[in-house]
Write a protein that binds this DNA or RNA. Sequence first.
DNA 1: GACAAAACTTTACGCGCGTTAACTTTTTAA
DNA 2: TTAAAAAGTTAACGCGCGTAAAGTTTTGTC
Lengths: 343, 343
Amino acid sequence: MTDKKIRNMEDFAAVSGISRPTVSKYFNDPQSVRKSTRARIEEALEKYDYRPNIYAINQNRRQTKNIGLVVPNLADPFFAGIARAIEGLIVEAGFSPLLLSSHGGPDQEIANLESLKAIKPAGVLLAPLGRASHVDQVEKFTKEIPTVLFDANLDDVGEAFFGCDNSQTIDLIVDYLCRSGEPPVLFEMENPVNPNAFRKRSAYVDAMKRLSHEPHFIRVQGEGWDFEEIGYREGKRVIQQNLLPTRTVLCSNDRLAIGFLAAAYECGEKVGIGPDCTMRVAGHDDHPFARYTCPGLTTISQDYASITARSVETILRIIESGERPKSREASYFEGRLVMRGSA
Amino acid sequence: MTDKKIRNMEDFAAVSGISRPTVSKYFNDPQSVRKSTRARIEEALEKYDYRPNIYAINQNRRQTKNIGLVVPNLADPFFAGIARAIEGLIVEAGFSPLLLSSHGGPDQEIANLESLKAIKPAGVLLAPLGRASHVDQVEKFTKEIPTVLFDANLDDVGEAFFGCDNSQTIDLIVDYLCRSGEPPVLFEMENPVNPNAFRKRSAYVDAMKRLSHEPHFIRVQGEGWDFEEIGYREGKRVIQQNLLPTRTVLCSNDRLAIGFLAAAYECGEKVGIGPDCTMRVAGHDDHPFARYTCPGLTTISQDYASITARSVETILRIIESGERPKSREASYFEGRLVMRGSA
DNA sequence: GACAAAACTTTACGCGCGTTAACTTTTTAA
DNA sequence: TTAAAAAGTTAACGCGCGTAAAGTTTTGTC
């Protein structure tokens, strides 16, 4: 590495022996220059430490290479995992991801979208808070900047949606629970912040009816995204007060289930499928920690490889074509049953 | 909102009736212009949707207002929580945080630092991987860009370090465990990726000796950052093969403990402090999920409010003064004991 | 009311790169 | 071998803003 100072592309072009416009062309697409030219530039790149100034580039390009990525809550390992997967795909495609977390709050979600505007992203991938979202403001944003939704749908907002087929997954687990024992009661939040919760609710009703069972609900109070705490507190209450109509509990999501399992443990219930067990518990989402609950949590694993892949593909296609799709696509991917000890 | 198009500061200056240099001054510091001028600009800001182009700003300013934030692994809720806290403090100070996760890999860590360079941050807050880090490359980076380390120290790298006083915290929990029952064995990784693990090890030895007990170790094999899995797999092995020298287990961190607890549960051990319990387990770090293990995990809570606050303060001071501190500060904050059911 | 200080205006340059136009050299294919 | 096509060169402008210099207006103080 020679230590002659390269201040800008002009300097670098000089030391590489190639004109600046050609060097500029190279950085925008290395394949667009002749092989011999490419070789000379790359030789210089090894000798001198030069990278084009990202601010100057973005000021002059019609479009940046930035893609915004907004998730509801990074403190939830489920979303942290998804975010990581998506970031990888974005980088692979030659774009720069910018990850923001809404921390469970609709105001933060809007603030995230606003601050994304400042970097003029070519597109945005948004997992909205859902019911809690300021839908009008989100919609307004999606009209300015191409946006693909995932995980939670907002009716008719954004260019496309990819998520989990909740009716299929709930069907799957309700079916399993009914075949292997007592039909489940649905443990859910009275006022869920997530719209998927509603889909799950009606999917549960449908599945139970199809199997000729009466649907039962335990609807618990609780605000915000502290699901484990709510599952624990309310789980303890319903167990202690003996409010469960059946001894098989299907929690609306794994985080509620994790809290519920902690409550069951404290109450001396033995959760599982053995002959000495007093209760079965199942979840939904296959949270990274679901393997390490006591016992391991039987749950539904979303096909989030497909969800992330299709979301990224779609936003890239929109960016590269330069035009919004005529019709909004919404795809729901099937999940699969993950059997562990709890049910 | 009038819909006349404001393309740049020139346009905005025109509609606000103030000259462009003064408008520019306003955006760099609203207090630097006369109150009446400020009022006129802000009036125009309400009528027209204008924000200075961030790329043009950063191209021309000597320093950006960006602060990089790199954590070892965002999928770990412990770091996700810290990241959120730090982001808040950075925004409060009028800077823009840029959050990157090293996903547990040293190559990714370096890649993160490299991509941070592209945005020319005024400073960086780095929680390094630790032992796994490519220390030389990290050090080289810190010489180019002011960097404050936190959580895990690298000898003499960066302008300052803030972290947990492991000798105090280990002392605290060893003392508690010895007072309330059998002295603990330390359950740790043979080749820990985190340097704090070594500090904890020697702190454990010191504490045990001080209390006139023989230190015991269970050192388990395992690669990478999948601590729960390692704790589970190796926990199961040592319990089944009866390799524990005592029935009180101090895990080097909560994530190992979470896996260990799952193993203990599966092996039919009753963990806790009751008369019918067969084993006690403690952790370190107060992981967000430590409340919901079965039973709840007794552990050490790091004072990460202080750690984050001091880290941010320090990098801000360096940025604002424009000069590196003459000597490197390293501060270790005391943690506190969090008692739950497991020990 | 006078005068200095503070704040503003006008004018102009520079940041580093994208991009175009007009021209020249190299490569490809008949 | 030769002409067309491809790729390169030089020259020049523009992006939106920071910032400096020189001049003008407003403000505050006695």
